[in-house]
Nucleic acid binder design. Sequence first.
DNA 1: CTGATTTTGAACTGAACGATACATAACCAG
DNA 2: CTGGTTATGTATCGTTCAGTTCAAAATCAG
Lengths: 193, 193
Amino acid sequence: MPRPREFDETTAVEKAMHAFWEHGYEGTSTQDLCEATGLGRSSVYNTFTSKRALFGRSLAHYTGTQLDKRQAILDGPGTAAERLAAVLGSTIEDDLEEHRRGCLVVNTLAELGVPDDEVGAALRADTDRNLTMFTQCVREGVLDGSLRDGLDPADVAEYLLSTTSGLRVMARRGSSRKSMHAVADLALSAITR
Amino acid sequence: MPRPREFDETTAVEKAMHAFWEHGYEGTSTQDLCEATGLGRSSVYNTFTSKRALFGRSLAHYTGTQLDKRQAILDGPGTAAERLAAVLGSTIEDDLEEHRRGCLVVNTLAELGVPDDEVGAALRADTDRNLTMFTQCVREGVLDGSLRDGLDPADVAEYLLSTTSGLRVMARRGSSRKSMHAVADLALSAITR
DNA sequence: CTGATTTTGAACTGAACGATACATAACCAG
DNA sequence: CTGGTTATGTATCGTTCAGTTCAAAATCAG
């Protein structure tokens, strides 16, 4: 009975995400979002309520795809050490391909911190899922012998997350691929046998 | 002959810096800057030309004091490894004392990247000075035996800078002091003998 | 005291901000 | 075809944005 949508909601979120990723939250106007998504103002507000809510959706979409990709690598073949190396390598390549926009999560943390709303919730959820994934992989690495004995999986998970954040900032700085790989190699050398 | 200033320029820059640090570049309005500095709009524009120029001044002031502090630690007593540990420890404590605002440099990199103006120049200068300082200290560490043989000082410098950036993002995430120290310890373990 | 010079405060500029109002258009069950 | 419902486009809301204008105030060399 109602008039149907003329656009795909997920596609719109994805386009909005790229706009936010490129210019940051404050740096993206509602006008920018209309142009990026191809929607009129009415459609944007009718569908997503507010700029902030659309940002929350965009952020959740970003973390979802990013975490799925990371999880797929960690669920793949190889020793734990090899899989962790693959995650860092993939992070570096993504950073370089994305035209130095860095990581939307890290950029948002830097710009907004962890606000007390849906945006902060998405950030917290991303942190938790990353730490859980890394912790599990480190446990496996201690068992399969590719990682050192006596490592605290939770600490190493924090260390790996911090390392990826550092790489993301490097990308934003304009560092070379070579430097980024050197950093990843050094970081891994602290935990591999 | 001219009417004298009623305020101290450096003090004003410092207050503006804290405003930018707290809310980011886009998130700080010229009105916020007037209130933070206690100056009228005319004085702000008469003295600093534009919001962006004042941001450049604020950023340069921040990097200057931050680098001086870091340099003082690296010029202090102890082995190179001990001094590097002190730098990371000091970074962590600063992060926690600063009410989780993170690092103005990292926040700015995340928000703006490296723009092609005075702001970008300040960011590049900060990166260069950090890398130079760390590189020198690593060289000393290889000589005094506190760091491993065969390390590439330039690579390790990038690694250390990336580690501090990662710690800064952790602070923004709300991580615990304990986690941050665990990360710093792990990071150092990769390069200490 | 005067006059050249600069700072200061208040009012103001046009543009852009996020968000809304509302008439019109499009759909489909009945 | 009609009526109920939602989507859309346009025009607009009041506010805030970065930055300017300008007269009044303050200084001190002469």
